[in-house]
Each structure stands twice: as C-alpha cells, then as structure tokens.
Design a protein around this nucleic acid. Structure first.
Length: 479
RNA sequence: GGUCCCAUCGUCUAGUGGCCUAGGACGUGGCCCUCUCAAGGCUGAAACACGGGUUCGAACCCCGUUGGGACCGCCA
C-alpha cells in the first residue's frame, strides 16, 4: 500500500488555537497509526495578514504539545514560482481564464445578488473575453485575475472518510480566482498544488472546508492528478454553539500553558472532542496512536467545555511524578513571586512537598499557589481563620505542642502522631481541636494536606518558628 | 437567500435493528471516609428534537419537519 502522508496546514494569521491543535492532533495520530509521514505546512499566501510572529507562535504551540512533524515547516511564499507555472499551464490549456472585473464591481454584484436572493456566484462574464477581443478593459489598464473554469454541468462526489458520500451540483460551483491581480495565488489553488507536490494521501481538516472540496477536486482533475482521500472533522463550538472564538474565552494553545495546563491533558481533552473509544476517558499517547481510527470520529460539532478540561488536567497532575511536576512548577513559582529567579530550592524537598499537594491542585498555577506556604518565610493569616482558631482556646494546646515537638528529632508521621495524641489525651480533645489551630499557624488558612504531612514537609525549624509566631499573635491580641 | 453538513442527559459521548426499564465521563444533589481541604467510594436527578414510514421488532434504516452549524472573499 501507498505510504500515508498527511499534513497540518495552518495559516499564520493568529496563534495556534485549540481547533487547529485538534486538527493537527488527528493528523498526527493518523500518521503515527499508519506509520506514515506528518508534514507541517504554513499557508502564508495572504501576505497582508500573515506574520513571522505567528509562524513562530504556531511552531511553539506544536512543540509544546509534542506534535512532532516529520517534514517541514514548508512555506508557500517560498513556492510562488511553482504556482504561477501551474496557473499558466491551465490558462494555455483553456482551463482557466483572465478576468478583468474589478473587486469593486464584484462586490456590487454580490450585494445585488444577495438583495434579490440569487446565489452569490461569479456570473462568468469574462469566460470568453479574450476571444471577443474586447479591448475596453485593456485600455483601462486593469491587472486581471485568473479564474478557474468550473464545469457547469453534472455532479461532483466527495467521498469523505467521516461523512460518507457527499454530492454537489457542479452548477453551484463558482469560477474561483486562483491568481490575484497582484500575481499571487489563492488558497484553493495552492492547497491542491502543494498537496499534489507533497504527495499527500489523506487530507484531514476542519468541516469548514467541506464546501471547498468539490472545487478542489476539479482543480486536481484539471491538473491531471489523482484526488486524495478526504476526512472532514466536525467543528469545535463555544458554549453558545457558534464557532469557537476569543469571545468564548481562551482559545490559544499557549494560553493554556500559561494557565498551568499539561500538554498531555489538553491533547487528551481535545481528542475526546469528536472521537471516542468506548467508555475510556484517559489515554496515553501510545494508546491514542494504537486506537485511532476515523470510524470512531463523530460527525456532530462539539461544544468546548472548560470544566471537563480542568478535570482532565487534575487527573494528569495526580498521575504525573512529583519530580516532573517540580520542574514544571518552577516558572509558575517565579511568576507568583513565591521564589525569585535565582533562588535554589532543593529538588527532593520540592518533590515531597508536591507529593502532598498534587491531588489538590487542578493546574500548575494552583500548585504553585498552594506551595507558597511551604516555601515562604512568613505565613499570612487569613483573618477569619485566625479569629476562629488562633485564640485563647487553642493557646495552651499550641504552647504544649511546641514544647513537645522541640523534643522530637525527626518529623515522621509516627513521631508526630505520638506527640499530638499525648496532648489530645491531656486536654481531652479530639484531633480536630488541635489540628485546625496548628493548620492555621502553619499555612495561614484552614485548608491543607493532612497536618502530619504538612509538618513533615515544613520540618522542625519552620514548624517551631510558626508555632512561636502563632502563640505570640494570640498573646498580642490579649494585650 | 443558495449550497452542504449535523441532531442521544446542561456538556463530551457509548450505542451500527432485539443485549437499552439507553451505558460512561464532566458538572450537579445526597451519603460514606475524615484533623480541614482535596482525592476516593457509594448513590440520586438528568437524554434518544418532532412526525411519518420500513420491520415481528427501531436511538439505530428511509422520508419529511423543526432546530443548529459551516461555506458562499482578489481570507485560509
């Protein structure tokens, strides 16, 4: 069988967004599943809107997601000469023609057509203009565009891997512009030329291209090439069921990195938007590659649900090693000013701190935030928590605990528990009565990992210091 | 407006004619666990858009209706 070759072809007119990322992912999975080739191609024929920054941003996003491509990134602007040759060939063969209608005239006609309810289609008036030798336009010295001559009769079948057979009436197809008046080629033409040139076997792209497909098929035929297979993915929608856009919140992939999402989690969430494998929710990359198939891709558009993404991320955080998380969380700690850029944290200690927090943090950002009370020199008390737990009622308990802990050499769970138990028995109180004041003393708030774990991570010196501070604070209130 | 696509809980989905008194996941209610918060466990509410066929039998097949979406650019 022919080797599978697919491509992801974004236009650099914006960041890599989640919709694009999912398209890239499906291409990637299909390629890997079939031991094929995954190509990255930048569609930058729109020179007014494409920028170098966005090209870099897209590449950065792809790399962050770990969607490694095998060939490219190719850029269409590097290939303008090739397109022009193909256009000339079509014109020579009578399969394309020059059109002298101006953009303004076209716009007017479109408005008129819209007003009287006619299809918004080019009327073909320049189809035979060269033959009639109408010199009016040449006198005006207009630069013509080149239009592709679509067949006017019959039907075109798009045999889609996801949607099945879709038929279009050729009479509905427009004589589309393939070369602009400035001599640059347009999308519908360059995709075909590039896909032919790069020997693409399967075109996997968004649903929004389905209506372009019959036109492209005719270009393939005019050029004398075999038509590849198509797979049109359903769209990703916002909560209001319209096409996902900035209005719906973050759409840029890198924005999710900044919010503290793991790339694997984003990918796992995205793949489930439109693809399912029974009831399984969490997939390793290997499983994804192994199981991926268009048969399991749905046809209906899917609403992007940030809450499920958060859950997915929390699952991945819980199941990622604390050592790895330690490395990932550092930039967030710096950004949060929990540590300075040059401070040295003990990696082993940080990992053990993360051990206690990873099932409580849904994002790396949250993890960094939770870590602050372990790392900071000083705790700040939440006023409510202080009023409720750092008061006369707990003063004796804290004093006694401090005394007792001064005698404990290693802050192991077992040793700490013995110390706590003794005090609880002395005062006839339950663990809660002691643990909560200690928790506030240690973390400033009422929520934290188990109290023995917290003290264990904190260590003797910090624990004693914070108990002392809490005791002083209560004394100060009295005064 | 024209063309094309789509339609199972609020959301993502399983389901490919009998296994469906429709399963899972997120979210949501309750309970359990418990030093707090999580995590985890148990449990509840929650859907086949509608109408016609086809069939012994339809969430699944066909037609229509309704609803939603995409495209209709010298954007990609």
């Amino acid at each position: 069988m022919e080797k599978v070759r697919v491509r992801f072809a974004p236009s650099p007119t914006g960041h890599l967004h989640v919709g694009g990322a999912r398209t890239a992912l499906f291409n990637y999975l299909f390629a890997r599943h079939n031991n094929g080739v995954f190509i990255l191609r930048i569609e930058d024929t729109d020179r007014t809107r494409s920028t170098e920054e966005y090209i870099e941003a897209i590449i950065e996003g792809m790399k962050w997601l770990g969607l490694e491509w095998d060939e490219g990134p190719f850029r269409q602007t590097d290939r303008f000469g090739i397109y022009r040759d193909y256009v000339e060939k079509l014109v020579r063969e009578g399969k394309a023609y020059r059109c002298y209608c101006s953009a303004e005239e076209l716009e007017e006609r479109r408005k008129l057509a819209m007003a009287i309810g006619k299809p918004l289609k080019y009327d073909g008036r320049c189809r035979n203009i060269e033959k009639i030798q109408d010199s009016r336009f040449r006198i005006q010295d207009r630069n013509p565009v080149v239009r592709f001559k679509m067949p006017q009769e019959g039907q075109t079948l798009v045999d889609d891997l996801i949607r099945g057979a879709v038929t279009f009436e050729n009479s509905q197809l427009d004589d589309l512009i393939i070369l602009r008046s400035d001599g640059t080629p347009t999308y519908n033409f360059t995709v075909v030329v590039d896909d032919v040139d790069m020997k693409i076997t399967h075109i996997i792209r968004g649903d929004d291209h389905l209506n372009n497909t019959p036109k492209q098929i005719h270009i393939y035929r005019a050029l004398g090439y075999e038509v590849p297979k198509f797979a049109h993915l359903p769209m990703i929608l916002g909560a209001d069921k319209t096409r996902l856009s900035k209005r719906h919140g973050a759409t840029s992939v890198m924005a999710y990195q900044e919010m503290g999402y793991l790339p694997e989690a984003l990918l796992n969430y995205l793949v489930k938007l439109g693809w399912a494998y029974g009831d399984q929710e969490i997939f390793s990359r290997e499983e994804l590659i192994k199981y991926f198939s268009f048969e399991n891709v749905g046809k209906a558009a899917a609403v992007f649900n940030p809450e499920k993404l958060v859950w997915m991320n929390s699952q991945y955080i819980m199941n990622t090693s604390s050592e790895k998380l330690a490395g990932l969380v550092i930039p967030f700690l710096i950004r949060d000013s929990v540590i300075s850029g040059d401070s040295e944290l003990d990696a082993g200690w940080l990992s053990s701190a993360i051990d206690t927090l990873k099932e409580r943090a849904k994002t790396l950002k949250e993890l960094a935030h939770l870590l602050r009370y372990y790392i900071a020199d000083e705790v700040e008390y939440d006023p409510k928590a202080r009023d409720k737990f750092l008061n006369e009622k707990s003063l004796d308990l804290l004093i006694e605990l401090k005394k007792s802990l001064e005698q404990v050499a290693v802050f192991s769970h077992g040793e700490l528990e013995i110390a706590f138990k003794a005090i609880m028995e002395n005062h006839g109180v339950k663990l809660g009565a002691l643990a909560q004041p200690v928790r506030v003393a240690m973390t400033g708030g009422t929520e934290s990992p188990g109290i023995f774990e917290v003290l264990g991570v904190m260590g003797k010196e910090k624990t004693l210091g914070r108990l002392e501070k809490a005791i002083k604070s209560i004394a100060d209130q009295r005064a």
